[in-house]
Design a binder for these strands. Structure first.
Lengths: 191, 191
DNA sequence: GGAGTTTTTGACAGAGCAGCCAAGAACTGC
DNA sequence: GCAGTTCTTGGCTGCTCTGTCAAAAACTCC
C-alpha cells in the first residue's frame, strides 16, 4: 500500500526521551533528535509533527516507565525498606549520570515559559506519589509506620525530600551524605 | 579622564540576575539582557565580557542576597519558628512567581552541559545550609530540637525537603499541601 | 507491471542568536 | 581648548535552529 517506515516508533520515542532527559527541552535541537533516533529531520517532522509533539510523547513515555518502575518495588521487602531502595535507586543513578528526573527537570525549566508542558510533566509525579502512599499504607497496617499523618501527606513529604535529594546528587553532593539523608527520611516515617 | 558609564553596574547585575532567574540561562538571549539592564548589547559586551561572565556575576550576587536573607531570619523568634518562616517565605514566593530558586534552576539546567556553572550555583546553597545548621544548633541548646543527629545532617535534610517543596510549588501544588508539608518537616525536628 | 500511497532524502527559506568592531560621543587633566 | 581615555551606538558577520517542500524511493494491491 505504501512505503514502509524504516524506524521503530517506540524506539524513536525512547531515544528522544533520553536525549531530552540529558540535554533538556530547549537545548535539544531537532538535529540532536535526528541523530539519537537515527531518523532524518524530514522524517521526524513527517512522523511526529515536530519537537514539541515529540517531547509530549517522551513525557508520557517517561511517566509510563516511572509507573512501571515504582510499582515494581520488590514486594518481598518490608515497606520501609521498599521506600529506602526506591530513593537509593534514584539518587545513585543521578550521582552516576547527573540527569536527575525528566519530570523534575521539565517543571524546573518550563514552569514559567511553557506551563502546559510543565503541567504534563507534573503528571509524571502521580505514579511515584501513589506508590509511596501505598507503601506507607502497608507499613501502617503492619504498625511500622506512624499513623499521626495521612499516607498521602507522608508520601508528599517523602517525595519532596526525594526530589531535593536528586538535586543534591545532581549538584555533586557526596554519596555518604545523600545516603545518610535517605536513612534519616525513612527513619522519620517509623511509628 | 574618560567617558563616564551611563548605567549602574550593580543595578545591571541585579537586572540580569532577575532575567536569568525568570528565563533560565540558555533561554536568556543577549537581547533580553540588553532590554532588562537598559544597556545596548555592545555596552554589555564592553562592560561584562558577555553572557556567560554576566551570569557568573549574577550567580555570585544571588548567593550574596541569599546569605543576607538567610541571616536576616528574625532573631526574636524561636529557632523552629525561624526555620518554618524561612521555608514558608521561599515556598510562598515560588507559588506566586513560579521562578523557584536560581541556584536550583541552574544546577538542574546545567549540571550536565556546564559543570563549572553548576558548581558555582552550588556555592549558593552554602549560606542557606549554614543558616539552617545555626538555627538547629540554637534549638538544640534550648532543648527544642532533637540531638540524635548532627545539626549539619538535619540542615541538609531540611534543605532537601525545602528544595523539593520549591519544585512542588513551581509545579502548582496547592498551597495548603505545601504548608502542611512544611509543618511536618519542622515538626520532625522536635526533640 | 502499473497506479496509488506513504516515507525518505536533501535542500531551502526565514528567524534568532553570539560576538565583534569602527566611528562617534563624553569626560578629565593639563 | 586640546590630548587622551573610555563608553556608546549601530551595524555586520557567521552560525545554528526550526519548519517546509518537492522529488525520488519503496511498497502493495490489482
Amino acid at each position: 500500500m505504501a512505503r514502509p517506515r524504516k524506524f521503530d516508533t517506540e524506539a524513536a520515542i525512547d531515544a528522544a526521551m533520553n536525549t531530552f532527559w540529558t540535554k533538556g527541552y530547549t537545548a535539544t535541537s531537532t538535529d540532536d533528535l535526528a541523530e539519537s533516533t537515527g531518523m532524518l529531520r524530514g522524517s521526524l517532522y513527517n512522523a511526529f509533527g515536530g519537537k514539541r509533539q515529540l517531547f509530549e510523547l517522551a513525557l508520557r513515555r517517561y511517566r509510563e516507565q516511572g509507573a512501571a518502575g515504582a510499582n515494581a518495588m520488590a514486594d518481598d521487602q518490608p515497606p520501609l525498606e521498599r521506600i529506602r531502595r526506591l530513593l537509593r535507586a534514584g539518587v545513585d543513578r543521578t550521582t552516576a549520570d547527573h540527569r536527575g528526573c525528566l519530570a523534575v527537570n521539565t517543571v524546573t525549566e518550563l514552569a514559567g515559559p511553557e506551563p502546559e508542558l510543565a503541567h504534563l510533566a507534573r503528571q509524571a509525579f502521580i505514579p511515584l506519589e501513589s506508590a509511596l502512599a501505598t507503601a506507607v499504607e502497608a507499613g501502617r497496617v503492619r504498625g511500622e509506620i506512624r499513623a499521626d499523618r495521612t499516607p498521602q501527606q507522608l508520601a508528599r513529604q517523602v517525595m519532596a525530600a526525594f526530589h531535593g535529594l536528586l538535586l543534591q546528587a545532581k549538584a555533586g553532593f557526596e554519596p555518604e551524605s545523600l545516603h545518610a539523608t535517605i536513612d534519616a527520611v525513612v527513619d522519620d516515617l517509623r511509628a
